[in-house]
Simulated assay, not measured.
Amino acid sequence: MTTTPIRYSADIETIDPDEGEVIAKLNDAFDTILERTSQDYGHAVRAVHAKAHAILVGELEIEAGLPPELAQGLFASPGTHRAYIRISTNAGDILPDSISLPRGVSLKILGAHGERLAGSEGSAQDFVMVAAKTFQAKTADKFLGNLKMLAKTTDRLEGTKKVISATLRGVHNAFESVGLEAPAAVDSLGGAPNLEPLGISYFSVTPFRYGDYVAKFGLVPIAPAMTALTDETIDVDGREDAIREDVRAEMRTIDAAWELRVQLCRDLERQPVEDATVEWDETEAPFVRVGILRAQAQDSWDPARVEEVDEAMRFSVWTGLEAHRPLGNINRARRDTYRHSADFRAEFNGCPYREPVAD
Rank of each mutant, 00 (worst) to 15 (best):
I6R: 02
R7F: 10
S9T: 08
D18Y: 01
A24G: 05
L26C: 09
I33E: 01
V45L: 14
A54D: 03
L56M: 04
V57S: 11
L60Q: 01
P67V: 14
P68M: 13
L70S: 13
Q72L: 14
F75S: 15
A76D: 04
A83P: 00
I85N: 04
S88E: 02
T89N: 07
A91F: 04
D93T: 06
P102D: 06
G104C: 12
V105R: 07
H113W: 03
G114N: 02
G114Q: 03
R116L: 13
A118W: 00
E121F: 05
F127G: 10
V128C: 15
A132G: 05
A140D: 00
D141A: 15
N146T: 03
T153P: 00
D155T: 04
R156Q: 08
T160M: 14
I164V: 15
I164T: 07
S165I: 08
V171C: 08
H172D: 11
A174C: 12
F175T: 08
V178K: 05
E181M: 15
A185H: 03
V186D: 05
D187C: 13
L189C: 11
I200P: 00
P207S: 14
G211N: 09
F217E: 07
G218Y: 02
L219T: 07
L219I: 11
V220C: 10
P221Q: 12
I222E: 09
M226H: 02
L229S: 13
I234H: 04
D235T: 07
G238W: 01
R239E: 13
R244P: 02
D246G: 07
A249H: 04
A249N: 06
R252N: 11
R252Q: 13
T253I: 12
W258D: 10
R261N: 06
V262L: 10
V262N: 04
L264G: 09
Q271N: 10
V273F: 04
D281K: 11
T283N: 08
F287D: 06
R289P: 01
R289L: 13
G291T: 06
L293C: 13
L293S: 10
V309A: 14
D310P: 01
M313E: 03
F315D: 10
V317G: 09
T319F: 04
L321Y: 01
P326E: 10
L327N: 03
G328D: 01
R335H: 03
H340K: 09
D343G: 11
D343K: 08
R345V: 12
G350T: 03
R354I: 15
